[in-house]
Each structure stands twice: as C-alpha cells, then as structure tokens.
Write a protein that binds this DNA or RNA. Structure first.
Length: 309
DNA sequence: TACACGTGGTA
DNA sequence: TTACCAAGTGT
C-alpha cells in the first residue's frame, strides 16, 4: 500500500504555544499596574528619546541613566541637533555612564539618521540594525517601544524571565542562544500591539521582580506557573558566569584618562595624562587605544582633547 | 565563540 | 571586602 506523505506540519505560528496566554495576560496586567514612570516611556519622548535611552541603558542601570538622559534630551531634542555638534561633546555629556564608545556610536547614529533618514529615527528593524551601536536588541527595542512593531525583544531581563518561567533554570546561558531566540519568537503574541506590550512587560518583570540575585516571587504574577519554582528553584549548575575583573586593567586606565579629558575645557598636555597612572607601558597602550577608538584626538603640539571630528 | 569595553551600587 | 550585577555591541 502506498503511504501518503504526511502534510508538512504547519509551522507553529503565533499563539500556538499553550502557555502563551497563561504568561502574557498576567504579566501584561501586572505591567499595567506596576510599570515605572520612566521618561523614555512617556509619549513626549518620541522615537529619538527611546533610542537615546536604549543606548544609555546598554549595561548601565536605570537610576544612573535618568539624569543624563534628561540633560541629553533637553540639549539635543532631535537627532540633527546632536549630529550638528562634535562627537567629543557627546563623549563629554556622557559623563560617567561608562563605556563611552556608546556616546560616539550614538553621535554617529544621529549623523546617519540625519543624512540617510531625513532626521527621523527609522521604524524598520533592518534599517535600525544598520546604524552604529545598534545591535539585535536595540533594533528590536526601538521598533517595539517607539513604533509598536512586533519584535522579540530579548535583553538580559527577558532572557532571565524565560529561563525561569519556561525553561525552568535559574539563569540563562552566558551568550544568547538560537534556542532562546526561537522561544522568544514562539512566545511573541500575534497581535502587534499586544506583542509590544508583552515586550515591555516581560522586561519590566525581569527588572523589578524576577531579578538576578533575589527574585521576589511573592510579587510575581506568574509564580504559580513558573517552571523553575515548580522544579524547586534549583541552583544554577553549569559553568560559572563570567566575572568582570576591572582593577588594574586597561579599561580602568582608559577610564581615568578619559575622565581628565572630559573635565578639561582646553587641550590637555601629556603630563596631565601621565599623572593618572604610574605604569608607562600600560598608560601608553590605553591612550593609544582611546585614540584608535576615536575617543581622543592627539594634536600636533603633543596635547590631547576630545574629538572635534 | 570569547573577549574587550566603564562605572558604581549592592550583598 | 570581594564579587556580582546592570535594557549590549563590535570584533
């Protein structure tokens, strides 16, 4: 007898995962009641405000971003306003948020938006991704938060929520895996507006309740269906999560050098930079790195300043 | 894939 | 006090 080939299994579309509504509805309802009133979530922030906040929030906590964000938006309310200034001004106004290359990239993104997109932050994921400093996460976040588009927004908070609630482990892997992307995509609500809400809500849940160190399961809207809790909240067993040493590294030296240049109103002589670190080889390497990254501009007379171009 | 890249708060 | 952690990106 002939066997009829089984029809291709329909790809699991949105809404096919049984747990979807069981997760989405309570998390979104919780979000409506408990979301923080952050300035970049207000309507007046606009797409540019969302983009600025996303750059600043890359690896920097909300509380430290808040005052700098307000300064930036007041000073540069549109991408073209930032693009009109030297990149060094962005680095200076970045202050002590850390990872100052982000300031450079945000300035470059503002320039690209001004030149290629008519000064309007693009709403298309691929166009966002093409901008300097915009990776997979930031492109999805801007498209979703600023334009209500349907994208899986997979940041460290969402990854942790999914690891616990769905996968049943304490922590996600060190690096984002294809399995995590697949899961986030499968869990994405089919309706655009609901998807955008879910993205913000699941992220906020990870930030406020399902935290890394001490999750507050007593306040979690999905604690009763959390796979990790159901498994007895087992401790993370895999390889230790990468620590970030800092003291004595080039990063620390770069930070000290750049701090001098941020505070200076005039070009800084070599001796002023030499004073921040006594080991000359490492100091020179760090300064070279800053110049190579475009964060520092060496002048003909041997002085240094934040970049004018 | 693994590492470099800042800074400061928290337990 | 040390170590972890914070809305990642680029190479």
């Amino acid at each position: 007898m002939t066997t009829t080939p089984a029809p291709p299994k329909p790809a699991p579309g949105p809404g096919t995962i049984a747990s979807e509504s069981a997760l989405h509805l309570p998390v979104i309802a919780w979000f409506e009641a408990h979301a923080r009133d952050l300035p970049w979530r207000r309507p007046e922030a606009g797409p540019w405000g969302v983009m600025v906040s996303e750059f600043m929030l890359q690896q920097t906590p909300v509380n430290r971003v808040l005052p700098v964000y307000e300064e930036w938006l007041a000073r540069w309310p549109r991408p073209a306003d930032l693009a009109a200034e030297p990149p060094g001004e962005a680095v200076r106004a970045w202050g002590r948020l850390g990872y100052p290359r982000r300031a450079l990239r945000l300035h470059a993104a503002a320039t690209a938006i001004t030149e290629r997109h008519g000064g309007v932050v693009p709403d298309d994921h691929a166009e966002l991704l093409a901008l300097p400093g915009v990776g997979e996460y930031t492109a999805a976040a801007v498209a979703s938060f600023a334009y209500g588009r349907r994208h899986a927004v997979l940041d460290t908070n969402v990854r942790r929520v999914l690891a616990r609630a769905v996968t049943g482990v304490q922590y996600p892997p060190n690096a984002t895996t294809a399995a995590e992307r697949r899961l986030a995509q499968e869990l994405l609500p089919g309706e655009e507006a609901v998807a955008a809400r879910w993205a913000a809500a699941s992220m906020e849940l990870g930030a406020l309740v399902c935290t890394a160190r001490t999750p507050v399961c007593g306040r979690c809207p999905i604690a009763d269906r959390c796979a990790w809790r159901a498994a007895g909240s087992p401790e993370h067993d895999g390889p230790p999560r990468r620590g970030q040493t800092y003291a004595g590294t080039d990063r620390q030296v770069r930070g000290k050098l750049l701090a001098v240049l941020r505070e200076a109103v005039a070009p800084v002589p070599q001796e002023a930079l030499d004073a921040v670190w006594d080991e000359p080889v490492q100091r020179a390497r760090a300064l070279d790195g800053l110049v190579a990254d475009g964060l520092v501009e060496p002048l003909e007379d041997g002085t240094y300043r934040l970049p004018l171009t």
